[in-house]
């Protein structure tokens, strides 16, 4: 785990140095990051209703996601087209930029009656990777306070097999589904949605 943290720190520094001096033709990290704000919100903090927030994202996860979009290895609408516009180096710069931004979880409506169940299921099956109640992740997604439609679609894509998930995640998700069925997955979504600021 520490190894990963070191990597993330180093990545941020890379962004700064490359953007400003090492390669004149590469835009800076903030130049690249700012151009995303039109859809993802200023500093990557979304207003919803659906587009995910990318502030505070793990740099490593950001790079993985963008490279997957770029290679059409992850289903998407517009991101597959956008990701192809950036070199791997630029993607790393953006990763550094967004990982440094403070994440503001989205405040949205949620079904309070299932939040406790969601919380329990999260603790049992998801907390190991989506830490601190889903507010932090070293190499995966922040879930707490992400827009509900986005959470639902992501789960649907995973369940339907159109989006690949890590083996350990599949095991955990099957575990939730076996215990509580679709209601269990829905409770997870409601729990994350309840984690607004």
């Amino acid at each position: 785990m520490k190894y990963k943290k070191v990597m993330q720190g180093a990545l941020v520094l890379t962004g700064f140095a490359f953007g400003a001096s090492a390669l004149a033709a590469t835009p800076s990290a903030s130049m690249l990051g700012n151009s995303c704000a039109g859809c993802h919100g200023p500093n990557g903090n979304t207003q919803g209703p659906a587009t995910p927030g990318i502030a505070g994202i793990s740099a490593e996860y950001f790079v993985d996601v963008m490279l997957d979009y770029k290679a059409d290895e992850r289903p998407g609408t517009i991101m597959n087209r956008i990701a192809k516009g950036y070199s791997d180096e630029e993607i790393e710069l953006m990763a550094g930029y967004f990982s440094e931004q403070k994440y503001i979880p989205l405040t949205q409506e949620f079904d309070a009656s299932v939040v406790r169940l969601g919380d329990m299921l999260h603790d049992r099956s998801c907390e190991k990777c989506h830490e601190d109640g889903g507010k932090f992740a070293e190499d995966s997604a922040i879930l707490a306070g992400q827009p509900k439609p986005y959470l639902k679609w992501s789960l649907a894509d995973f369940r339907e097999g159109v989006r690949e998930m890590p083996k350990k995640m599949k095991r955990r998700m099957d575990e939730v589904h076996k215990a509580k069925g679709d209601d269990g997955l829905n409770a997870l979504v409601e729990y994350y949605a309840s984690q607004g600021k």
Partner: peptide, 21 residues
């Protein structure tokens, strides 16, 4: 592979960024 790549670029660039700041 990706992590490995990050490791290399990260270390190489760390020094120059300090001067710049």
């Amino acid at each position: 592979t990706r992590r490995d790549f990050l490791k290399v670029t990260g270390t190489a660039a760390a020094a120059s960024s300090l001067t710049l700041a």
